[in-house]
Design a protein around this nucleic acid. Sequence first.
RNA 1: GCAGGUAUGGCGGAAUUGGCAGACGCGCUAGACUUAGGAUCUAGUGGAGUGAUCCGUGCAGGUUCAAGUCCUGUUACCUGCACCA
Length: 944
Amino acid sequence: MDTIKVEKKWQDFWDKDKTFEVKNTGVNPYYILVEFPYPSGSGLHVGHVRSYTAQDAIARMKRMQGYNVLFPMGWDAFGAPAERYAIRNHIHPKEAVKENVKTFKGQMKKLGFSFDWSREFSTTDPEYYKWTQWQFLQFYKNGMAYKDTIPVNWCPQCKSVLSNEDAAGGVCEQCGSQVVQKEKSQWMLRMSDYAEDLLTGLDDTNFAEKVKLGQINWIGKSKGAHVNFKIDGYDKEFTVFTTRCDTLYGATYCVLAPEHEYVDEITTEEHKAEVAAYKAECALKNDMERTELNKDKTGVFTGAYAINPVNGEKIPIYISDYVLASYGTGAIMAVPAHDERDYEFAKKFNIPIRQVIAKNIVGTGDNAIKEGKKMTERQVVNVIIKHPTEDKYLLVNNKKFNWFTFVMGGIEGDETATEAGIREVIEETGYTDITIEKEMEFIYYDNFYAAHKDVNRHITCHTIVGHLNSLDSTERSEEEKDIADVLWVDKDKLMSTLTTEAHRYDAERMLNGEGAYVDDGIHVNSNDLDGLNKQESIDKMINWLHEHKCGEAKVNYKMRDWIFSRQRFWGEPIPMINCPKCGWVPMDEADLPLLLPDVAEYEPTDDGESPLAKITDWVNCKCPKCGGDARRETDTMPNWAGSSWYFLRFMDAHNSDSFAGMDAMKYWGKVNWYNGGMEHTARHLLYARFWVQMLYNFGLVPNKEMIDIRVSHGMILGSNGEKMSKSRGNVINPDDIVSEFGADTLRVYEMFIGDYQQDASWSTDSLRGCKRFLDRIERIGEKLNDKKGYTDEVLAHKTIKKVSNDLVTLKYNTAVSALMIMLNEYEKFEDGISRDDYRLILTLLNPMAPHITEELNEMYNLGEVLCKSKWPEYDDSKIVLDSITLGVQVNGKLRGTVTVSPEASEDEIKTQAFEDENVKRHTEGKEIVKVIVIKGKIVNIVVK
RNA sequence: GCAGGUAUGGCGGAAUUGGCAGACGCGCUAGACUUAGGAUCUAGUGGAGUGAUCCGUGCAGGUUCAAGUCCUGUUACCUGCACCA
């Protein structure tokens, strides 16, 4: 078959027939959406083909099933690449976009996607961005847009503001020079106001779980408290955000972000120079550098002290860039004992570390508390002693209970842990030449049954670490010798030798180094909180803070307001006017769209303003309020703006009175099924949902969430398993594949390539396999017979069911495989296949290979064109087989099979199973313990 | 570091959700038809063994009559986020 000719023929037919154009009327509306592409200069990618084909297949099937399917396509054409291209080639970006759109559209048509082209638009069309601007004005008028001064990435060489992506690694992507931070006034949208709504709104969607998770992580909700700290010697206080106000008694210093507003004021005279230097150093670093230098904490002391509200203690105030000005309040209380970052900082600056939580180990198993035994309180010391010359540790082995532990014992009277520890080592092991190095944080060993004393215990367990200077020793008492042996154990055998959890925990802390203890436990050194766990303490502390007016419960979100300005030419102009008298004034809505002017130069200005700033005719205007001279905003909107509502426009693409009519939006309801790349699931989806929620709150859209199902496809990688890129030389151009193998082959192959949501590597060999499959589909047409109906009813209905279900559960690969199996079966039919057989396989294959199936359907005169035919329905009762084969296992190993009718009783199946020769061999002479029959699945005979 | 994902023949991947592991495709082997084969058709194809059989789903345990699937621990790779208090 001449695929080029045939495919063209059907594409022309669909065009002329307007087969896929839909009206906003009729029953069963169904809206299928794929992310519209950025029409780049390099043309369509095989990755696009994957997701477009998948959605196209669903669209085609749904139409045949009687749905009114909206499957639109358009262009997300604003953005930096088009602008860069324009700068280089001195042509207007809209010309470049026109060219690229032509290429993309041509490629899409050649692939036979069933888009409704009557609704096509580009975000760069004035008729479209008019409404993007109009919506911005609604945001502004409702107080959701404001101006603020924030730092941006600035390339001094290109004299241009860079996005975080373009400034990756602190280096300008274009020229390679060092990026610096520069303060700029920017339009912002109050997205953080919607954090909670964006979180709860997820419940009204059917996004894939991992997509939801991406949204949740991005929003980054955390519950905690604000705590106010007075500054010693000032009538001033600052507020910190903490999720762990329960550890307030362990706060031994505070840290302000270097940008914190109080820093200059509270810094004492002798620290001024140091603080100023540190601040200057931080200002030079951008976010990337700050995080890169994370390995080592830096900071300086301000000389000032804060007062801890719970105990009145004076604690030093430091500044450090590990505290971010942009999160929380830009200030923290530091609890080194129970926060890893604080711990690291405290170690480096020699700040006290105060334990306020003790790990609590509860006895389990043999150590679990025993009913009716006395509960006793004990202070215990565990002693970790290192060998004087070898890398070994001193253990004792209690013979009666076969316990392996460090030396341990009770602390008597007013002994310190160290004194008790030394005493116990001498008593239990005889070694006398002991040096104790340190005491670790203590732990509780709660509700634990001590078998050797036959009592229940609540132990406070102090752990000290030391070494022997020599093996000098005294004779142990006979009593001690009876109780326990002394042994030295290698470092790496330690963990597996120790028999109690408390000792293993000690060993781990000692070997891996101590750090902050961040888990739950029992509070200590915390007055009223002592004895409480984490949650209890948090609740109690929040009450206390509230009562004493020095803090309150507080929820914080990672998500910040949306920076909505770009200093770029190729974006939607922001329709705002700056009047010297009236300030910022929105443009009159009747004057929209505010068109992008035609200019000759697209380079940004020297001070980083958008190129629009240079066009004085355009910039200078009259204030809509007072009529005086005023200037337009020269910043443009970000690329994300146009794509935040395009799916609404598709519902009513030609509406000139509004961005989309309420009736049209109500008719289509939500986007039923939205597909896009994993890389967009976090940001694009969040922006779009935020945008829609605002519109909803202004009464402009019918639903708070406008997208129901969201799925993401995996990437198509090069044949070497790496991402396709020109530099790697592994790019596959879909055009080449279409002209050599045909669009249908490419479509079927990309559906068959593997799990849709997983990445997959390109394989031209595998592609050939799909070509062979389609060739065989064509060839079997020569074996048509005159019989009526399906030759194999079971096969027919089974396959209808499989394909119908697989297409809507993203299992395209097994749908194709089911059709391959069907064809394999057809080829085995001795008298050829019936016309109904052929029509069936062509229909089922049509969503994936629409051209060849239409052609064969027409060639053999099998019926109406497939795209207007009805999708076949399956009948479960026809899938029932006359007989089924069950595996027979003996002790879980397959030994034979039985073939029985589906209605066979358990006894019949059992009887037959035992008749199998091989089963007999494995069961003869053995005791039958149990026979398990799972109807329709398996028989398992358990023998001894 | 945190979060998520993945791991099954020579390769891409199936497995009705705990029930005959390796469907389907590629590749490979042998044969047929051919002047020819990167066409087509037939047979075979996880490993070891002549065989009965044994071993096999990253690794180590566990639960179960039965584990790729469930539980505990662990390793490697991929993708996000990254000092989020």
